[in-house]
């Protein structure tokens, strides 16, 4: 099953929230050594997909395999062993608010490896240097800007040198210079360390610039897939709408709802 170039394999994925199907039969592959991008409108389930890959949510149907293991079927210890080789950047950053920047990045290392303090320090400083925040190491998370917090979270996500890194919206809230550095960083980490990366993002240009392969999801299904060049050349109306950032088109911009006129005239409910 393993040994091939596919690190994570998702087949006929079905997942439901309340009565709404977030995924209704999605297939995708995360190939080793590549940066795979997942794009899609807000609320289309990108974060949910990462949580399914990380085993924090269980699918209602279909299969989610990472490194040849069926994630939903793993026992807790097996799942934890797999997660040691995964890094995840949370959309909210999710830094530990009671720990300094340095200790946040050191946390996963301290938990999993018994390193002498000088070595640990060197490792953490290198990770912080990579995101340009070595000088901010003694700040507390509350003293960081949103963009800085996200970069610290990124440093923490790669602290254990994972095999698979999942970035949930790494570019949000970054200035153009930092954005460029982050693109460079994600690409370099991926290529030099031989990682595989999943990048979830709305930022079309940045994502197309960094990705080897792109999946576009909307409405619980795969809308399109292909290399950035293939997507750019696509003449599907839905893909064009997404890439050119237009509100009207086949992809609904709104969360499913009854007609606006109907609801305004109806005058009932919240």
């Amino acid at each position: 099953m393993t040994g091939d170039e596919v690190l994570a394999r998702v087949r006929d994925l079905r997942f439901q929230r309340g009565r709404r199907w977030i995924f209704d039969g999605v297939d995708l592959d995360i190939r080793r050594g590549q940066v795979t991008a997942i794009m899609g409108p807000s609320g289309s389930g990108k974060t949910t997909l990462l949580r399914l890959l990380g085993g924090q949510l269980r699918p209602h149907g279909g299969s989610v395999q990472v490194a040849g293991q069926e994630v939903p079927r793993l026992s807790r210890p097996e799942l934890y062993r797999l997660r040691r080789r995964m890094g995840m950047l949370f959309q909210s950053g999710a830094l530990f608010t009671h720990l300094s920047v340095f200790e946040n990045v050191a946390f996963p290392i301290r938990e999993h490896a018994e390193l002498p303090e000088p070595l640990l320090r060197a490792l953490v400083l290198l990770k912080l240097e990579a995101v340009g925040l070595r000088g901010a190491r003694s700040l507390m998370p509350a003293e960081l800007s949103g963009g800085m917090a996200r970069r610290v979270a990124l440093a923490r996500a790669i602290a254990l040198d994972p095999v698979l890194v999942m970035y949930d919206e790494p570019f949000t809230g970054q200035d153009p210079i930092t954005m460029g550095v982050l693109i460079e960083l994600i690409r370099r980490l991926n290529d030099i360390l031989g990682l595989s990366s999943v990048v979830v993002s709305h930022d079309v240009e940045e994502t197309l610039a960094i990705a080897d392969y792109v999946y576009v999801i909307a409405d619980g299904r795969l809308l399109a897939e292909g290399s950035p060049a293939q997507l750019r050349a696509s003449d599907s109306a839905a893909v064009r709408q997404f890439l050119d950032a237009r509100a009207d088109g086949p992809v609904p911009f709104h969360y499913p709802a009854p007609g606006l006129a109907e609801e305004l005239l109806d005058g009932e409910g919240p």
Binding site: Q56, M88, F107
Partner: peptide, 22 residues
């Protein structure tokens, strides 16, 4: 409650650290 609301417990789980134990 706040650690949960701000996904700190989730992110700990993703680092293979059991928040219930830690």
């Amino acid at each position: 409650g706040l650690m949960k609301a701000t996904e700190q417990l989730s992110s700990m789980e993703m680092m293979a650290v059991d928040p219930e134990r830690r």
